[in-house]
Structure formats: structure tokens, C-alpha cells
Nucleic acid binder design. Structure first.
Lengths: 117, 117
DNA sequence: GGGATTGTGCTAGTTCAAATAGAACAATAG
DNA sequence: CTATTGTTCTATTTGAACTAGCACAATCCC
């Protein structure tokens, strides 16, 4: 459970946090039923505000990735396991994209457009 | 050449514009050598500032997607043709992701992590 | 029961990139 | 030569992100 954030990035901190946790769920680093560290803990460790961490957690809850309840914390749902199912297709796509010299932004732009179409 | 932007989105306008054009290049809607509409035109049509449009154009130039010169405009480079090569893998991935109920944000998060790893 | 933990909700203030606006300027096309 | 188009500059406004602190409610655990 390693949470990486870059304060200098234009991407909002809460987005970075959520993305980092999503990725951990997808790679299997996070098991179903596992509890994420308390928001206050994460905030202290990363030296950011509690509300920022909570916002990331609430975002993941909206996606059904975690079960968020007071007193209990953020628990990874079974749904998160489904994220791992793409473990094969994604590396292939990324490899091909890199071979063509596409940036991460360019690749996600294509993926997003396809998703919306 | 349809440029879509959502002023209410948290994603910056210049990013949305660049992503829209990238996607057009990838889908073949934009041909190599074709010129993008003048920044002032786009700005007027979308009712946004010229500088915002130019910023998107400059972003694409940094990626090598267009050739940007004053008096001439933004011309799609040959490099943009390479974007089309992923036309098969992406739809498959997106279809699988949708089947699993992943949001666009969740999917791009996984792709981005894989890209950076 | 009772205390500690954890998320929820609220108000308030700060910060900074994004976006706007206007102008002058330089390269290119025709 | 003239119109077009991107470049550069200064200045201003706007709004989301982030911070800060507090009270509160649900849950856990002894």
C-alpha cells in the first residue's frame, strides 16, 4: 500500500490519490475486504489535509470500489476484484502505444473518446 | 472536424480541446496535411478565448502531432497517422472495461499506471 | 456502559492555474 | 501590399483545490 502523490502536478491531489488506489486494486496489491489506512493517518503521512484524503475516498465510494462508513473506514469491495480482469489487455495496449511513441495523455485521450462513443 | 468542449467539466478547456483533436487524429477523421481551423475561428465558434485555443494547439505541437507556424496555421503531421494504428486494441479494451462496469476514469487510471511502470 | 476511532458536515480562508481581455508584433500566403 | 495567423506581452478575473478547525454521529472494542 504505497500512495504516491506529486504536489507539483496539475492533477488534483484527490485525483492522484484515487488513481493510485484504483491502480493498486487493479494490480492486486489491494485485496478484497482489506481496509485502507484511516484518512487522518494518510493525511499526516503525506502532509496534506484530511478533507483531501476523504474526497478521494468518497470518489472511490461513488465508483463502488470501497465501502466507506464512519467508525469503520474504507473497505475494499468485491467489485474491486473485477479491476484485475484487465491485467492482460492493458499491458499489451500500452506496449503498442509506447512503440508508436504515443504519450500517456495521447493514449488516454483515444481511450476516453472510444469510451464515450 | 467537430470540436466538443464542456465548460462545466473540471478538465481544463485547453486539455479538452487537445484531447478532442488527438482523438480525431486517431480515428482518421483528420488527415495528414490537413489544416486545423484558425485559432481565432475556433475561439469565436466555441465562444472561448483565442489564447485558450492556441494553448491547445501548442500542446499538440509539443507532442509532434501538428506543425504550428504563424501565417500558416496548424497542419497535421505525418506522425499523426501513427495514432490510427491502435484502432483495434482500444475498442476491445473499452468494451471489456464497460462489461466490468468500469468508469472512464477508472480505466484511464489503470492505463496510466501501466504506462508509468 | 464508555472511551477511542473514523467518517460526515459545516464554515471560513488561502492559493494558484485557468481563462479572459486587449494590444502590438512577426511570419506566411496570395 | 494586404489579409491572415500564430507569437508575445501585460493585466485582470474567476473558480476549483486545498487548507484549517470545529462539532457531530456511527462504529468498534474493552
Amino acid at each position: 500500500m504505497l500512495l504516491r502523490i506529486d504536489p507539483l502536478s496539475p492533477v488534483p491531489l484527490f485525483e492522484q490519490l484515487a488513481a493510485s488506489i484504483r491502480a493498486d486494486a487493479g494490480s492486486g496489491a489491494l485485496r478484497v475486504g482489506e481496509r485502507l489506512p484511516a484518512a487522518r493517518e494518510v493525511a499526516a503521512a503525506l502532509d496534506i489535509n484530511v478533507h483531501t484524503v476523504l474526497r478521494a475516498y468518497q470518489l472511490l465510494r461513488d465508483e463502488g470500489l470501497v465501502d466507506l462508513r464512519r467508525g469503520r473506514g474504507a473497505v475494499v469491495t468485491a467489485r474491486a476484484g473485477e479491476y484485475s480482469s484487465l491485467g492482460l489487455a492493458i499491458p499489451q495496449l500500452v506496449e503498442e502505444a509506447k512503440r508508436l511513441g504515443l504519450s500517456a495523455a495521447a493514449l488516454t485521450a483515444l481511450v476516453t473518446k472510444e469510451y464515450l462513443s
